[in-house]
Amino acid sequence: MNTLNEIAADRNSTDVLTIGGTKLRSRFFLGTGRYPSPAVMLQALEASGAQVVTFAVRRVNLEEVEDDSILRHLTERKDLIYLPNTSGAGNADEAVRIARLARGAGLGHWVKVEISAHPYTLLPDPVETLRATERLANEGFVVLPYVSDDPILCKRLEEAGAAAVMPGGSPIGTGLGILNPYHLGLIAEEASVPVIVDAGLGSAADAAQAMELGADGILANTPVAKAQDPVAMARAMRLALEAGRLSRLAGRIPRKRYATASSEPEGRLFGVPASGGPFEAGARGEKAADDADAKGGAAHRPAAGPGGGEGFAAHAGGRSR
């Protein structure tokens, strides 16, 4: 009998995420900002198992040329995939400029389009993001746009040439987690390119949820970098991501309103619960719920959507990106 680890290993060997023609050995994308020190960042990177690392492009400080360039600490890791973002861009033109500059560094041609349109929420500008994605894809970039969790927009981006879409769980750095699991579930269900949940995750639980919702990976920066122990959190989120992925593939049970005993009722030592009262109605209710589930409905699940309930059962294992 396989241990859980063996099952996981077996799953992982065939369950490979591919973006822009590159097979990735990890579904965890790690940001490199805001760590207490470069050393902690490197340890967190190690603990995360991440292969794709994100950066920002900034002007060199001409006054203080000794300031630290993040790449200096990563050059020994030859297997990394660099995903520069276009943060600081306010429109498609600026994003394209930043992307070209990033490519000029000679570290690949992946780019995360990030065009923030609001000072407090940093929420992405959908129109400019779409424009930039189209242009950059035409220029041969592997484009991963950071977008709002809008299923239609994600589809449009895919059509514009995005290699993956990166819907946000909640605004960058808020740690509010996944505010609209219904939308994320729909995005994952509809997308024919990988879905990387980017932004807003707060902890390991959110990583697991994202994966259970059908995401193909997550990108995290702040929840790791600003955790009390960034290295431990990197490992926690990695494990949660793997757990969530496995859980998704395993196919969860449908949500039901009332209990189902884990053991068969036959042969029990004592009598059935007294009839009448609330439990009488409950017994009928359970029957009704079972009927509803059998038909694929959701009679008693007020908030469950495609990602929250039967979507898992219907789609578990259905895709492997």
Binding site: T32, R58, G104, G173, A199
Partner: peptide, 29 residues
């Protein structure tokens, strides 16, 4: 507005009024 590959720096003239950007990578998500 045009990226200049490092190999071309020696052959790229700097003229009056040129707008030059020198950028590098910093930590980011």
């Amino acid at each position: 507005g045009e990226v200049v590959p490092r190999a071309d720096w020696t052959s790229t003239p700097v003229g009056e009024g040129d707008r030059i950007e020198f950028v590098h990578f910093v930590g980011g998500g």
